[in-house]
Simulated scan of single mutants.
Amino acid sequence: MYRDFLSTTDWRAESACSRVDPELFFPIGDTGPALTQIEDAKAVCRVCPVSGPCLRWAMEAREIHGIWGGTSESDRRLLHHRAARAIRA
């Protein structure tokens, strides 16, 4: 059931980012001007009604590029590492 939910794109129709230039969500790098772009993208995510399903999709798909569900690439990497440590503990 969970995978079925994630594989559907219904939640994407409700996303705040669908009305914003997609390039905002794919900054080049994570320093300098890219930091401002990351924060601007995360601001869109903060008001998005489907940021939860978006983040779940990105985590399940192991999406390594872009801003998804209010998280950057490095944010998601950290979440994956924390989850792996919790499983080992």
Rank of each mutant, 00 (worst) to 15 (best):
residue 60 E to Y: 11
residue 5 F to M: 14
residue 69 G to P: 02
residue 47 V to D: 15
residue 26 F to L: 11
residue 77 R to I: 02
residue 50 V to W: 12
residue 20 V to Q: 08
residue 76 R to K: 05
residue 77 R to T: 08
residue 56 R to I: 00
residue 41 A to L: 05
residue 42 K to M: 03
residue 41 A to P: 01
residue 18 S to R: 15
residue 74 S to G: 01
residue 46 R to Y: 07
residue 58 A to G: 08
residue 36 T to R: 15
residue 45 C to I: 06
residue 49 P to T: 05
residue 20 V to H: 08
residue 20 V to T: 12
residue 11 W to I: 02
residue 13 A to P: 00
residue 33 P to C: 02
residue 64 I to E: 13
residue 47 V to H: 13
residue 60 E to D: 14
residue 77 R to A: 15
residue 68 W to E: 04
residue 36 T to I: 12
residue 31 T to L: 09
residue 8 T to N: 14
residue 62 R to M: 08
residue 74 S to K: 05
residue 76 R to L: 10
residue 42 K to Y: 02
residue 78 L to I: 10
residue 43 A to D: 13
residue 18 S to V: 14
residue 71 T to W: 08
residue 43 A to R: 13
residue 29 G to L: 09
residue 41 A to C: 05
residue 50 V to L: 14
residue 33 P to N: 06
residue 5 F to T: 06
residue 15 S to Q: 04
residue 8 T to F: 05
residue 71 T to K: 14
residue 49 P to I: 05
residue 32 G to M: 09
residue 68 W to K: 03
residue 79 L to M: 13
residue 54 C to N: 05
residue 77 R to P: 00
residue 73 E to A: 14
residue 44 V to L: 12
residue 76 R to P: 02
residue 4 D to M: 08
residue 61 A to Q: 12
residue 68 W to S: 09
residue 45 C to F: 08
residue 8 T to L: 13
residue 44 V to Y: 09
residue 72 S to C: 05
residue 48 C to P: 05
residue 32 G to I: 05
residue 81 H to I: 09
residue 24 L to I: 07
residue 80 H to K: 04
residue 60 E to K: 04
residue 56 R to L: 10
residue 34 A to R: 02
residue 25 F to W: 07
residue 61 A to H: 06
residue 14 E to M: 10
residue 58 A to P: 02
residue 58 A to D: 05
residue 42 K to P: 01
residue 75 D to V: 01
residue 78 L to C: 06
residue 47 V to S: 14
